[in-house]
């Protein structure tokens, strides 16, 4: 913490600068109405520190690019209001945990993206454009199960929140396994067995400790813990059927 006397209007922001051997650097900016954490980072880059590296794209919670660690918790910064997370007029903003740091708030997402492949993604269909589209009833049990796990924005917040990932880099992690669960429930996916096998392989869903940090931190309120529990149940009952 900076030892300077702070006014009510000033926000004390500590931002991680550099790579693995970097350090926290202090900045002061004005507190504004309806200010998001991404607004804070952007203002610091534009006014105080032009070399500050960070990622964002849509600014409205769709793209999943702007996730960072804010006051110790992984969050989507574009939809995180400062007033909800600020502690004592201070914010500490760091890159996501469990991923290699590149520079400042940017980390290398490659290990995270790899987890989807390791969990048996991507989708693989066998129909061609000449065949009729598969008819999947919206209220069929498989569709309902897949529905609950769809809409992941691949922000890596769950991967960063997961303690098992932090001590076991071989663990696929919540996002990949959540994706596997949607594929296992997709009747159009022609590699369902294989996806299930991969999701249950070494470092797969059997490694999950059910801490639930993924579900607690997911910004779009998905429940990867339940998807993982579904995969574990399928070990006893076989792949879900209609």
């Amino acid at each position: 913490m900076s030892s300077t006397v702070t006014s009510e209007r000033l926000l004390q922001v500590s931002i991680w600068r550099g790579g693995d051997d970097g350090r926290l650097v202090q900045y002061e900016i004005e507190t504004r109405e309806n200010q998001t954490v991404l607004d804070v980072v952007t203002e610091i880059q534009r006014r105080l520190e032009p070399s500050l590296a960070y990622r964002f794209a849509c600014r409205v919670g769709v793209c999943g690019s702007c996730a960072m660690t804010v006051n110790g918790r992984p969050r989507w910064t574009c939809r995180t209001h400062v007033k909800n997370v600020v502690e004592d007029h201070a914010l500490t903003i760091e890159p996501l945990r469990n991923l290699p740091k590149i520079k400042d708030l940017v980390c290398d997402l490659a290990p995270f993206i790899d987890t989807f492949k390791r969990a048996g993604a991507p989708f693989s269909g066998s129909n061609t454009r000449h065949e009729k589209p598969a008819a999947v009833k919206p209220d069929s049990p498989l569709r309902v199960a897949a529905d609950a796990a769809l809409q992941c924005i691949n922000c890596a917040v769950c991967y960063s929140a997961c303690d098992v990932v932090s001590w076991n880099p071989d663990y696929i992690g919540p996002a990949g396994l959540n994706r596997a669960w949607t594929l296992v429930n997709d009747v159009r996916h022609n590699r369902r067995e294989q996806t299930f096998k991969m999701a249950f392989g070494e470092g797969g869903c059997g490694s999950c400790h059910s801490h639930g940090n993924c579900t607690r931190h997911c910004p779009v309120e998905l429940r990867p813990s339940e998807s993982i529990a579904g995969l574990k149940r399928a070990a006893f009952s076989g792949l879900p059927t209609e």
Partner: peptide
């Protein structure tokens, strides 16, 4: 293998 061990441990 992992799946069979998982099931065996629970049973």
């Amino acid at each position: 293998m992992e799946k069979h061990l998982y099931v065996a441990q629970r049973l």
